[in-house]
């Protein structure tokens, strides 16, 4: 039914609604992304940013509306593992890595590969995979922690490891939830650089509160409020928008 509308968009959300116990978390949300695009999503607390991500990744089913992937696949029928296999990678707000595994194993499990029980049971790590892990480690600057347990990493390092795991999945779309939380300014800027570097090859959605970080990304910004999009455009454009000012400064 939506062949025409979605020819170009990698991700296409239209008229999504979701309520929890009568509270409308998402209310007529529409959003679309092209392949390789970098996009920042901002909005005050409770604007529905995390719920939007939950719906894209199949964690939460919308009550109403369409969510299409690549113009062909109905995301509302997919679960988390499905969406991950389609090529959607997600980083949580709180860094979540496998603490009792080594840094290397964390990346190994994220690497694009067969995911079935049987395949993993008999899988052997190839040299190509080891090499790829090495590259990723270099990218997220964790080369010297390869054999350490992830639990022993610092908070910022865990964030980076998680980003590394996302990249290891080689997804078409990365959803990154507050990557700069708990990072030093220097780390924040480095993260922004990293994400900018990734974009182009992968589409990236960054949810962030930190305006300096969003500025550093220098990309198109979508502002969410009360479960719907109230403005979209460059950072300068949206910060001039009256609705946005009202929402952020209060009335």
């Amino acid at each position: 039914m939506s062949e025409l509308r979605t020819t170009e968009a990698l991700l296409y959300l239209d008229g999504l609604e979701k309520s929890f116990d009568g509270f409308k978390a998402i209310n007529g949300l529409s959003f679309s992304m092209k392949a390789g695009e970098l996009r920042a999503v901002i909005g005050p607390n409770g604007a529905g940013k995390t719920t939007m991500m939950d719906m894209i990744t199949g964690k939460t089913r919308p009550d109403k509306g369409d969510a299409l992937w690549d113009g062909r696949i109905d995301l509302t029928t997919q679960d988390e593992a499905d969406t991950a296999r389609l090529g959607i990678g997600r980083k949580f707000q709180k860094p979540t890595v496998f603490e009792t595994h080594t840094v290397e194993d964390n990346l190994l499990m994220a690497l694009k590969d067969e995911r079935s029980v049987l395949a993993t049971l008999f899988s052997r790590t190839s040299d190509a995979q080891r090499e790829r892990i090495g590259e990723l480690l270099a990218l997220v600057r964790l080369e010297d922690r390869r054999g350490d347990l992830a639990a022993n990493l610092s908070h910022g390092q865990k964030q980076w490891l998680e980003i590394g795991m996302l990249l290891a999945q080689d997804p078409q779309l990365l959803l990154v939830d507050e990557p700069a939380a708990g990072m030093t300014d220097e780390e924040t800027m480095r993260t922004a650089e990293l994400l900018k570097g990734i974009a182009g090859k992968h589409a990236v959605v960054v949810v962030e509160h930190d305006m300096a970080f969003v500025k550093a990304l220098g990309c198109r910004v979508t502002v969410l409020h009360q479960g719907t999009v109230i403005a979209e455009g460059s950072i300068d454009h949206v910060s001039a928008n009256e609705r946005v000012i009202e929402v952020y400064l209060g009335r």
């Binding site: 964690k59 988390e80 595994h101 190994l108 499990m109 993993t120 049971l121 899988s123």
Partner: peptide, 25 residues
């Protein structure tokens, strides 16, 4: 000790993360 075993431990420690990596928990 196989990769499947690593996935099992991953499920134990962070089930949701494992799902988002594409494993059918």
């Amino acid at each position: 000790t196989s990769k499947a075993g690593k996935v099992l431990v991953a499920v134990r420690d962070a089930e949701s993360r494992t799902r988002f990596l594409g494993y059918r928990v």
